[in-house]
Simulated assay, not measured.
Amino acid sequence: MTVDLEDTKERVLDAAEELYYGRGVQAVGMDAVRTASGVSLKRLYQLYPSKSVLVEAYLRRRDAHLLHGLASYVEAVPGPPEERVAAIFDWLYEWFSEPDYRGCAFINSYGELGATAPEVAAAARAHKDAFQRYVARLVAAADLPAPLAAHLALLAEGAITTAAISGTPEPARQAREAAKVLIAAARA
């Protein structure tokens, strides 16, 4: 692909992400994405033949971005591997503190379209599975019992939803404290 084509696709995905995450997938039509991206409607449909294809591309890119951001943050944490497990919740606090935080794009999209759009449901499941696998790797590296990974992932998911609804990043701190209790219990 040429650089111009890649740049155009990125502009479209940037616009789609801002609009879908900010307003919701159902509330945003292809014309709004066209306007925000500055790409002609004909070109937009050449790149993404349907809204469902664009939504799927948006979710795939968001998945890669979020998981990369989490891993970069966590892997930079010094100290024992156990600290990297707890750092998940520090990263969540930073994410929840962003001014445009609206919760999990996958949960939001699934809530809007999951029952009628199998590709959205599949993208949401794939993201949640990838997150849980990442937590499981951290748990294993810290030599903690494997079942703890699912418990910590559920804590994180609860914090993500609660922060979106409450409008405060504090659920990340509360979940971090609960994670420390679970880790200590697992060590005992």
Rank of each mutant, 00 (worst) to 15 (best):
S50D: 13
A105W: 03
N108H: 07
V33Q: 03
I165T: 14
L70M: 13
L44V: 10
R61L: 00
L19Y: 05
A126R: 15
H65D: 13
A175K: 03
I107F: 06
Y134N: 07
A16E: 00
E170H: 12
T162N: 11
A136Q: 11
L5K: 12
G167D: 10
A115M: 06
E177A: 15
P78D: 14
A57E: 11
A64R: 14
L144W: 08
G24Q: 08
L19A: 04
M1I: 02
R176E: 13
A15G: 06
Y48L: 03
P49R: 07
E6A: 12
I107Q: 05
A121H: 11
L138G: 04
G22A: 00
E82C: 01
E17Y: 05
G79Y: 03
A150P: 00
R43F: 02
R176M: 04
A178Y: 06
G29N: 00
S97L: 05
L19Q: 04
A115T: 06
S97P: 06
S37Q: 03
T35W: 01
S109G: 14
W91N: 01
A153E: 11
A185M: 14
V120K: 10
S40G: 12
K9N: 01
A164C: 07
S52Q: 13
A185N: 15
E170A: 15
E56F: 00
S52W: 05
L154C: 12
